[in-house]
């Protein structure tokens, strides 16, 4: 192939990609709430690797704090909790999934940050989570400063990535896509520690006798439910439901069922 042809092929590729982009701009004329009602089904992005907020039980059913919150929202919008479709998301792909219209709403442990506020609409906070360290039982690591020069597992797309870069710049961050992969890497000895949201670390520490949770909780920040940027009608509805759920005891019931056992170790809102 001649150099000229090479350049031409590359140019054509870029052009094609551009055309796809132009044609793929979402036609968001109809309100999301209307779309969901007409469809008779809400599509919710939840995690499947993040107990006790979003995981999958032995029979393949979605379970967790976020899952129960989604069932409640569905019941209050469509009359029955069964009119929900769960889509498995990760910290990395949940916002792209929302932006591209694959899901209507994210209920997947999204920490509210200013960066994310620029691209999605957040509800009022529904949980407060800091970060803790998960290490093998016999590890000498007991604090953030011990992570200097160590390999630390991080999940791509999480706020923890920037936090560790800021707080322990000497730590060697090794990034994985899913929680399960980070835990496997920790157990296989590829990394010395894994840092992520406190509630997840507490749950994993309890489920895995060969691991333990350590460190002081850093940066407590709220979780929010997220919808597409500019969809104030939908997020307003979500906020009303959150208030109702707090007032009628639903929120307390969900909280006790999923994180009650860790209550003493969690940051109170």
């Amino acid at each position: 192939m001649r150099p000229l042809r090479l350049v031409l092929v590359l140019l054509l590729t870029v052009l094609t990609l551009g055309l796809i982009a132009a044609s793929a701009t979402p036609a968001a004329a109809q309100s999301t709430l209307e779309t969901i009602k007409n469809r008779g089904k809400i599509i919710v992005g939840v995690k499947t690797d993040f107990p006790p907020f979003g995981s999958v039980d032995a029979s393949g059913k979605n379970i967790g704090f976020d899952v129960d919150m989604s069932y409640e929202l569905t019941r209050r919008l469509l009359g029955s909790p069964s009119k929900v479709e769960f889509v498995s998301v990760t910290s990395g792909n949940r916002i792209p999934f929302l932006q591209s219209g694959k899901i209507d709403i994210i209920v997947a442990t999204v920490t509210v940050t200013d960066e994310r506020r620029k691209v999605v609409e957040f509800s009022e906070p529904y949980f407060l989570s800091g970060e803790l360290i998960l290490v093998p039982k016999a590890s000498p690591i007991n604090d953030l400063k011990d992570l200097a020069g160590k390999k630390v597992a991080i999940i791509q797309g999480t706020i923890t990535d920037a936090d560790i870069a800021e707080l322990v710049p000497q730590a060697n961050r090794v990034k994985y896509g899913k929680v399960t992969e980070a835990v496997l890497a920790l157990k296989a000895g590829h990394v010395d520690a894994y840092v992520h949201d406190d509630i997840l670390m507490l749950k994993l520490g309890k489920e895995n006798p060969d691991l333990r949770v350590t460190g002081k909780t850093i940066y407590p920040r709220p979780y929010g439910i997220a919808v597409r940027k500019g969809d104030t009608e939908f997020i307003g509805w979500v906020n009303t439901q959150l208030t109702n759920m707090r007032n009628d005891g639903t929120y307390d019931r969900i909280w006790k069922a999923h994180v009650g056992e860790f209550g003493a170790f969690l940051v109170k809102p």
């Binding site: 793929a24 792209p96 791509q156 797309g157």
Partner: peptide, 14 residues
């Protein structure tokens, strides 16, 4: 990996 890493932080996947 790098593409994931960048797009997961700036949300400009396309």
């Amino acid at each position: 990996f790098v593409a994931n890493d960048i797009s997961f932080n700036n949300f400009r996947s396309f």
